[in-house]
Design a protein around this nucleic acid. Structure first.
Lengths: 334, 334
DNA sequence: ATGAAAGCGCTAACAA
DNA sequence: TTGTTAGCGCTTTCAT
């Protein structure tokens, strides 16, 4: 990376002159056009970009707490919105000046971002794959780390009870006298997902609820295709558990098209990982086991700040309660 | 902000020793426990946080191009997802190493973030309110600026043709022999929004399409309440233009509940500012005039890079084409 | 086991 | 009109 010194030497002026010109202060400092041109030409030739860190250090710009958030830039990108909402809210009320930096990353590629850890005070890592987890467990980090929705013996984590996430829907279906369930889920990309399914299955088994599983991509499209297949089952399942709101919304459309009434012919419960509005304003609003992402984000921040001050030390995990939110798709609301 | 020097002086050691301890290298450098404790205690007492810029400058960590994105953290937050998706894609393929930094901000409060402009190479400003625009027009920025979806005589901008966004739906409604339209929109928080409405209205007027307007908050909830009110109209409008997908999804639910068939009794066209999946997997998929946000984001980046190299200079604006996407809510698809 | 000093890139005060 | 210099906070050699 070229520096202002190199620019200056090529242009045949001093670094300060180059700095003045490049910062658009030529007029007030009365730098003649010829000098300006020399500087700009050199800068352009070298493809010069100012070093932000140097500038910032020099400027003493009120260094605030830099919080790096790592979020996978795949189908989970839309869920970042809720997390960020919670994080910002918490950052505003934590009493410190925080700067939230988002580092989107590709699944399994966290190991390529080690640089990013050097430039923050604390990192919150979300959506780590099992491979990413292996990297995390093995690497020594220069800053405190908080993991969102993962388990670890090494790091601080914020979690929900994954077992309950599967158990509650199964119990509700049983209580409502269903006999024949379908489960629409996507590939388990972290252990918690498998736990959710397994606990639904074991609770169902315990109570004599039969279950048929369908795997699709975690998207509305996946949910739609899954829903289509479920419609073709004979007999039709009387209840459906979806492991994400996206899947549920897609399935809802498939059922709507086949004129299968929800909740009349089939009740649906989904894991509420989407926007509240998405759940509430579907044509048939979704009953969900609510994933408190905003609160989890706030907990991540709290944990991060506590790590920073040494009030807690890793490993240490916070588990947030989940709640069943009854809406139209499963329940007696009209 | 306390520095390592102050820590050192309080702990009665040299800055280098303090640095070693604070960076967890006590073992390899054989710093005895007592010294460590003194340092940690001082750091804790002063609430020390390392200066990220200094650390980074010193480390020469491969300075990449820092792109700051300013996005309003209100009801528009969910739309950031599409923008970011486009921006990341473009960043990966632009040949430069880019670091995307997101600065969420409050409507009308852009003027409080001048600090943020000092620490990036180029800024992309999205969702600026009219007040924010006044600030932007008056302030002198240290870095190149690109405005998303706004007009300016001073800055580079990326836009769509707002007139077409209103005109196309009106023309389609007329062509499909509708007589009696409803418009569901939200308060015009930037001039482009007003243009969209105005051009719908003027096109409608030209063709004898009567129009009744409803204003609601730009959310699914707003759309739902607007939809409820529209249902109570007598006669029922035969077509509905929604200025955002959120409004349309909410309205769809209201119509569904009143058993008003879409598109049978009422056709709907919305301005497609939401996720493609949201539009496609609604129970009745939405016909939209598509807002190419991903492409607009890519154009913002291109413009930004061109500004940086001086290939273009402000003002300069790029207008991206919009497209009508026919789906079930308006058209002859079954 | 600890400290002194240099230098990362930049800018502003001051000198020339 | 331009150049010299100091110093932002940090880490790392090299001395001690």
């Amino acid at each position: 990376m070229p520096t202002i010194k190199e620019i200056a030497s090529i242009a045949g002026v001093s670094p300060s002159t180059a700095s003045i010109v490049l910062n658009g202060k030529s007029v007030e400092r009365k730098i003649p056009k010829v000098t300006q041109d020399k500087v700009f030409e050199a800068a352009h030739k070298l493809d010069y970009h100012p070093n932000v860190s140097a500038r910032r250090l020099r400027a003493q710009s009120g260094e605030s707490l830099v919080i790096a958030v790592f979020w996978a830039s795949d189908f989970r990108a839309p869920m970042m919105v809720r997390f960020l909402r919670g994080l910002q809210e918490a950052a505003l009320t934590c009493g410190k000046k925080c700067e939230i930096m988002i580092h989107p990353y590709e699944n399994d590629k966290l190991r390529n971002l080690t640089q990013a850890f050097e430039i923050c005070h604390v990192a919150i890592i979300c959506n780590a794959s099992e491979d990413d987890m292996r990297f995390l467990e093995s690497y020594t980090f220069p800053v405190p780390i908080v993991l969102y929705n993962r388990s670890s013996q090494k790091f601080c984590t914020v979690n929900v009870n994954d077992s309950l996430l599967g158990e509650i829907p199964a119990k509700i279906f049983v209580k409502r006298h269903h006999k024949n369930a379908a489960v629409l889920n996507s590939e388990a990309i972290f252990p918690g997902m498998q736990i959710r399914i397994d606990s639904f299955l074991s609770e169902a088994k315990k109570s004599g609820l039969s279950v048929r599983q369908f795997y699709r991509e975690n998207s509305m499209e996946g949910g739609y295709h899954g829903g289509e297949e479920i419609c073709r089952m004979n007999p039709l399942p009387d209840c459906l558990f979806c492991t994400s709101d996206f899947l549920a919304i897609g399935a809802l459309r498939a059922l709507f098209q086949r004129k299968i009434s929800v909740p009349g012919q089939m009740e649906i419960i989904s894991i509420g990982n989407g926007d509240r509005e998405l759940e509430e304003y579907a044509c048939v609003s979704l009953s969900v086991v609510h994933l408190p992402m905003e609160k989890m984000a706030a907990a991540c921040l709290k944990l991060a700040l506590d790590l920073l001050t040494g009030r807690v030390s890793p490993p240490c995990s916070i588990e947030l309660p989940i709640m069943y939110r009854e809406r139209e798709s499963c329940g007696d609301l009209q």
